[in-house]
């Protein structure tokens, strides 16, 4: 679990770190919009590249950042 002196932020029902969230947005948004804007030519391609950008961004973020959740398995484990 990453050390964060300021604690965590509760956004949309889950805890995140403000710094990681900002970085995640900075990674995802340009990849998605960039994929759409820079795609060469015909209609379906920009959308497909934009969606691919969103998916790539998702995986980059998933690898870069650790979830801020504490799992409590109760007694048995």
């Amino acid at each position: 679990m990453p050390k964060n002196t300021k604690g965590y932020l509760n956004v949309w029902d889950d805890t995140v770190s403000g710094r990681d969230l900002l970085l995640a947005l900075i990674i995802s948004t340009p990849l998605t919009l960039g994929g759409y804007l820079l795609a060469p030519g015909t209609p379906p391609l920009p959308l497909i590249l934009g969606l691919s950008g969103a998916i790539v961004g998702f995986f980059i973020n998933a690898v870069l950042f650790k979830p801020k959740r504490l799992l409590d398995f109760g007694k048995e484990q």
Partner: peptide, 23 residues
């Protein structure tokens, strides 16, 4: 829960909505 950070979901939704709004 252990491997997919909430940040990744938030960022993906945010960028998907930006994409569709731009379209």
């Amino acid at each position: 829960f252990q491997h997919v950070p909430h940040e990744a979901f938030l960022a993906m939704f945010f960028s998907l909505v930006m994409l569709l709004a731009y379209m």
